[in-house]
Simulated scan of single mutants.
Amino acid sequence: MIGRRPGRSTTRDELVEAARHEFAERGVEGATTRRIAARAGVDPGMIRHHFGSKAGLWQAVLELPFDPFRLAAPVRHAPPEEVGRVLVSTMLDLWEGPLGVGFRAMLRSAVQDPGYADGIRQFLLSRAIMPVVRRVAPESRDGEPDPERLAQRASLAASQVIGLIMARYFLRLEPLASADHEWVVAHVAPTVQHYLTGPIVDDRNE
């Protein structure tokens, strides 16, 4: 049984490095905690000890200062008819709060590094966006949801939120940049709400 090594522990760093290679080779879904631990030469329990879960380890690999799953809790718990408003309002509060610095660093890195952007996209989709889409999309209530349709809804909703962030905080487009939260939510949330719960044109059979 491989356990904690004697002396000054570098287990956490070794797990992050092993995970970085496993995620790159097998993807987030394909990489397992057992393989990552074996690559680092430690017991799999060390992942739980240092990171809590594979998602926590992935967060450490990306050097994210937050867990999107926890930050998205208000959105996941919002009534389906209010999810667009809660999503936009939550993003504005987070971006302008203490975590805003981490968000800005993350977005800059994603723009500059395609590999990092791919990791961020996978992590945000799996931890923050898709849980919301699966819960509120009409397809989820009508039967077995179509993964392609859920992906369409997720990407369209994300495009609105990311576009809002770029226009308001990076490009500083007026009057959007100086508008109060209520104005922004009133004008952006209906579009986000439509993408999450409204009808989506199906052109796949045309």
Rank of each mutant, 00 (worst) to 15 (best):
A137N: 10
R108W: 04
A72C: 12
I129S: 14
L94T: 05
L92W: 11
W95K: 08
F123Y: 11
D142L: 12
A105E: 00
S140H: 08
R149W: 05
A128N: 06
D113I: 00
A137H: 10
V88Y: 12
P147R: 07
G119V: 00
E96M: 05
A110L: 01
S126F: 01
R149C: 10
F103D: 02
H77Y: 12
R108I: 03
G84V: 06
M130P: 13
P98E: 07
P145M: 07
S109E: 04
R135W: 03
A110F: 02
V111M: 13
R104C: 01
A151V: 04
A78S: 14
A105W: 01
R104W: 02
P98G: 06
S89P: 13
A117N: 03
L99W: 03
P79T: 01
D113N: 06
P145L: 03
Q112F: 02
F123E: 00
A110S: 04
V132H: 14
F103L: 01
Q112C: 04
P74G: 14
T90Q: 15
S89K: 08
R135V: 00
D113G: 02
G102Y: 03
L99S: 05
P114D: 04
H77F: 08
P131I: 08
S89C: 08
Y116A: 09
D118H: 07
G100T: 08
V111C: 07
R108Q: 11
L107E: 13
